[in-house]
């Protein structure tokens, strides 16, 4: 049988869609660009990508993970119309999927970013700028952080206290690394389920202050916190805090950048509790890190 041409549209819709289901994910995406009809059939397949993410660096790279393949599409920064058209197609095809956005450079101007990415269903916003000026950084956070479920910031030389309106939002997960000026007050205003602080200058006293605030009722939604800090003595960390050793328990909560809740097995730990005795937390140290798991 001649494979160089095949009148696909002579087939009933169900057979067209079944044929598409048998294709590799990359081929499915390619065929949906052939016509409105193939686009419609592609949507009917109801494919849910495991991950979609956009990386804005020297080029704009869009990745879609549909088991078992990761599909890459790269665009030059000036081709904003082409990027927008591709994204609109993906959003239609996959039913407005959650998308992670990584912003690594300022090569794409803010207005273009707003036009191209402004309507997306942002899951995680990563802003890892090398040379991002204050105004650009602030605009980016204001534009994209509001709809994001997770926030990942790094290498900013800009003062954290200027971004409290961003940090205060109810993210599932927030990660900060390394922010030289990070203070305990910045942590206390965060209302996230999971907080990661990497390579901080926080001291034993700072951690002690954070724990005391948690005991008094701060960070009510917190399920898990991970802090890399300047650790010297556990006694300093727990000064004035009632505690006891507890045997291993299995924790289930929102940990790290996972899209879903996941379980972490605990070996042992130190248990503290809040003033009202309505919540307990297990604290575990490892070298210069502290992890706290809150039992709700």
């Amino acid at each position: 049988m001649d494979a160089s041409s095949f009148p696909l549209f002579c087939l009933p819709d169900k057979a067209i869609q079944n044929s598409m289901r048998c294709m590799e994910p990359k081929d499915i995406i390619n065929i949906t660009f052939c016509s409105n009809s193939t686009k419609h059939h592609g949507k009917c397949l109801n494919i849910k990508p495991l991950e979609c993410f956009i990386c804005i660096d020297q080029v704009v790279q869009i990745q879609v993970l549909i088991k078992p393949c990761r599909i890459f599409h790269s665009f030059l920064i000036p081709d904003t119309l082409e990027i927008k058209s591709f994204l609109d197609h993906m959003v239609h095809l996959f039913g407005n999927p959650k998308i992670d956005i990584y912003i690594h450079s300022t090569l794409m101007d803010f207005d273009s970013m707003r036009v191209v990415f402004g309507e997306l269903n942002v899951n995680c916003l990563y802003v890892h700028p090398e040379d991002m000026d204050y105004a650009f950084y602030k605009k980016i956070l204001n534009q994209f952080s509001k709809s994001a479920k997770q926030l990942d910031l790094s290498s900013s030389q800009h003062p954290m206290r200027d971004f409290h309106d961003v940090l205060i939002q109810n993210y599932d997960y927030i990660s900060i690394e390394p922010m030289a000026d990070l203070k305990i007050d910045d942590l206390l205003i965060m209302n996230s389920l999971s907080i990661y602080v990497i390579d901080s200058q926080l001291t034993d006293k700072d951690i002690n202050r954070f724990l005391k605030h948690w005991i008094s009722g701060a960070n009510t939604r917190l399920e898990h916190i991970y802090i890399e800090f300047q650790r010297r003595s556990n006694e300093e960390v727990f000064k004035g805090i009632k505690r006891r050793m507890v045997s291993p328990r299995r924790f289930e909560g929102f940990i790290g950048g996972a899209r879903e809740r996941r379980v972490e097995e605990l070996t042992d730990g130190i248990e503290i509790w809040n003033e009202k005795r309505t919540k307990k937390a297990t604290i575990k140290f490892k070298r210069t890190t502290v992890k706290m798991f809150v039992w709700h």
Partner: peptide, 23 residues
């Protein structure tokens, strides 16, 4: 259907358009 999918495997959009002869 698997046979049809095989005909289109590894082709880009332009090549697919040639194969499937859009109606």
């Amino acid at each position: 259907c698997e046979r049809i999918a095989r005909m289109l495997r590894g082709k880009n959009t332009q090549e697919m358009i040639k194969v499937i002869t859009l109606p």
